[in-house]
Computed example of a mutant assay.
Amino acid sequence: MERRTRATVLAALTIVLTGACADAKETPAAGDSPSASTSPSTTASPVTPGPPWHDEVAAAAAGTTVGQKGTPCELPITFSLPAGWKVEAVKGSAEFGEPTVGKARMLCELDARPTGELGFLRVWRVDGVAGGAEEHLKHFVGAYSPEASDAQYRRVRAGTLDAVEASYTADGDTDRAIALSSLYGPIVLSLDAPDPEDLLPAYQLVKQSARINRD
């Protein structure tokens, strides 16, 4: 996050990272798990090529499953990630407390650098916000990128889950975040990279493979 004005905050959060690299697994076949929320529309996702959504970008090949029981980041949802990414759980510490931004608490950090790419996908839990996935996502964007502009929101399907996706401009680039409906409320995943479009294939893979964690 070298280009972010919020880099100082995230640097403090990174100090308390704990966990280990996830073991690569065969990604399970897509199931027909029902959505955890009927709040967003369950119709087919819109397809919008070009900026800001770039739906024409193909998903990367799956190499690792994130979120399962017994893996570094146990989450209410699971999703696939390209092979080679580093997966670390994020926990609080006595010195720095919980790694939070606003009412969003970071649960997991997914690091692309071992693959030669620069950037992260970060997983957040937002608590104490009234409303559904869109309200949770708007709170996250406002807290995480206070100077963000040109924010757009849309309802989509992410794997088998209802979701709300955000596109917004920060430091001159178009960033992305998505709130995925789980059995325990929305889980937000943010894309953070010097060149966000470089990580869109990984981001698309996460979107297409998201499932409720039934473990």
Score class of each variant (00 low, 15 high):
residue 81 L to M: 15
residue 110 L to I: 05
residue 71 T to D: 01
residue 82 P to I: 14
residue 72 P to G: 15
residue 98 E to D: 15
residue 107 L to K: 13
residue 84 G to A: 08
residue 71 T to F: 00
residue 103 K to L: 03
residue 70 G to Y: 05
residue 92 G to H: 06
residue 90 V to R: 01
residue 79 F to Y: 15
residue 111 D to C: 13
residue 75 L to K: 04
residue 112 A to C: 09
residue 98 E to M: 13
residue 101 V to M: 11
residue 101 V to S: 10
residue 112 A to Q: 03
residue 83 A to S: 15
residue 100 T to Q: 13
residue 87 V to H: 01
residue 103 K to Y: 05
residue 101 V to P: 02
residue 92 G to K: 08
residue 108 C to M: 06
residue 78 T to H: 02
residue 96 F to D: 00
residue 74 E to C: 01
residue 108 C to Y: 04
residue 108 C to T: 04
residue 103 K to D: 14
residue 87 V to G: 00
residue 106 M to G: 03
residue 95 E to G: 07
residue 105 R to D: 10
residue 88 E to Q: 12
residue 90 V to K: 05
residue 96 F to G: 02
residue 86 K to C: 13
residue 107 L to A: 13
residue 105 R to M: 07
residue 99 P to Q: 02
residue 97 G to E: 12
residue 89 A to Y: 03
residue 88 E to R: 08
residue 101 V to Q: 09
residue 106 M to T: 09
residue 96 F to C: 00
residue 105 R to Q: 15
residue 89 A to T: 09
residue 72 P to I: 12
residue 104 A to W: 00
residue 92 G to A: 04
residue 81 L to D: 07
residue 84 G to W: 08
residue 103 K to R: 15
residue 76 P to G: 01
residue 110 L to A: 11
residue 79 F to C: 08
residue 82 P to M: 11
residue 85 W to L: 04
residue 82 P to G: 14
residue 81 L to Q: 11
residue 111 D to N: 15
residue 109 E to Q: 15
residue 95 E to H: 05
residue 76 P to W: 08
residue 69 K to F: 10
residue 83 A to C: 07
residue 102 G to F: 04
residue 84 G to Y: 03
residue 94 A to T: 11
residue 73 C to G: 10
residue 98 E to T: 14
residue 91 K to C: 09
residue 107 L to R: 14
residue 81 L to I: 08
residue 96 F to Q: 07
residue 105 R to E: 15
residue 94 A to V: 13
residue 72 P to Q: 13
residue 87 V to M: 00
residue 83 A to N: 11
residue 87 V to W: 02
residue 90 V to H: 10
residue 107 L to C: 05
residue 105 R to P: 02
residue 80 S to G: 12
residue 109 E to W: 07
residue 92 G to R: 06
residue 87 V to A: 01
residue 93 S to Q: 07
residue 103 K to H: 09
residue 108 C to Q: 06
residue 109 E to S: 09
residue 70 G to I: 03
residue 71 T to V: 00
residue 81 L to S: 12
residue 74 E to D: 10
residue 72 P to V: 14
residue 69 K to Q: 14
residue 77 I to K: 00
residue 69 K to G: 07
residue 93 S to V: 03
residue 110 L to W: 04
residue 91 K to A: 15
residue 69 K to L: 13
residue 92 G to N: 09
residue 104 A to P: 08
residue 110 L to Q: 00
residue 106 M to K: 11
residue 111 D to G: 03
residue 108 C to V: 08
residue 98 E to I: 11
residue 95 E to L: 14
residue 102 G to T: 11
residue 81 L to K: 05
residue 73 C to D: 07
residue 107 L to V: 06
residue 108 C to L: 01
residue 79 F to S: 01
residue 91 K to F: 00
residue 105 R to C: 05
residue 89 A to R: 13
residue 73 C to P: 10
residue 110 L to V: 08
residue 108 C to S: 02
residue 70 G to E: 01
residue 75 L to D: 10
residue 110 L to P: 02
